[in-house]
Amino acid sequence: MAMPAATETGGSRNEAEVILEVHGLTKVFGSGRAAVRAVDGLSLSVRRGELVLVMGPSGSGKTTLLTLIGGLLRPTSGIVRVTGLDISSLKERQLTKFRRHYLGFIFQSFNLLESLNARENVEAALNFAGIGGRKARKRATALLTDLGMADRLRARPHTLSGGERQRVSIARALANDPQLILADEPTANLDSRHGHEVVELLHDIARQQQRTIIIVSHDHRIRDVADRVLWLQDGRFEGFDEGDTQQSALLDTAGVLYGASPQTASPQAAESQRRASQPVAEPISAAPAPSSAVKRGGWLPWRRA
C-alpha cells in the first residue's frame, strides 16, 4: 500500500498542512424504521499541529466520528482523508497498516494489555509495526522516560495509577510517530490533578511535536487548550469555538448545546458545519515537525513552559 506523505497532498502550503479532511461523512446503524444516523453528513478539516476538541452529549455521535476517522468503522457515505489518503477506499489489511503508521489512539479506559508491563505495552505497538528487539525496547524506554515514567517501566498496568496508565497509553500512541492522534475521553477516568496533567501533555504534544490531535470529551477543562471546539449533537456539528481566543456565543447558549430544536438549530448548524470544515487561520507555530519525541532529547512534555 502506497501511503502518500502529507507534503504530497497538494501544491500550496495551506493544502499541504491539512492532515485530516472529512467530507459528508455519514454513518447509519440499522435499517428501515430502526435506522439511527449516528453521524450525519459531517465535514471537517484539521491542520498539522491542531488540537481539536469534539464535545457533545452522550449519544451525539462523538465516538462514532472517532471510529470512522480511525478506520475502525466503514462510513455509510462520505470521505475521510488522512494526509490526503482516502481511507474509506482501503481494504482491511491496508487499514491495519494505515492505523499502525498514521494513527495513535488514546482511550478513556487506557486499554493497556494487562499481562505486559509499561515498557512492553509500548514495545508491542512497535513490534506490530515491524520494529523489534533492542531498537523497540530503546524507543519504548525513551518515550516513557520522556513522559516521566522512567521508574515505572517494569510496572504492570494494575499497579499504576490512572494518570500513569494514561501516560503509558500516550507513549504507546506516539510509538510509531503518527501524524494524527485520536483521543476518546482521555481524562474521564482520571482525577482532577491527573486529568490536568494529561490535558497539558496532549497540548504540548500538539504544539511541540506538531501532531494533530482530535479529542472527544465531555471535559470542559480541555477547552482551554483546544484550538477549536466542535459541538456535536444528533450526529451534526451544532456549534464551534476557536479555542480560548474566540468565545462563540453558541457555546454559551445551553439551548443550542443541549436541546435546541432542529428548526432553531438548523441555520446555526449550517454555519457550524461550514466553520468546522475550515481549518483555523493560524493554528500552529511554523516550527518544523520533529520525527519523534525520542529525538527531542530532554523534552518533558507534561511541564508546560
Binding site: E92, F105, L113, A125, F128
Partner: peptide
C-alpha cells in the same frame, strides 16, 4: 477479546 481488539486498533495484523 478486548485486548485482541486493542491490538487490532494499534496495528496488529490478523496473522500476528
Amino acid at each position: 477479546a478486548r485486548e485482541y481488539a486493542i491490538m487490532k486498533v494499534i496495528g496488529a495484523s490478523p496473522m500476528g
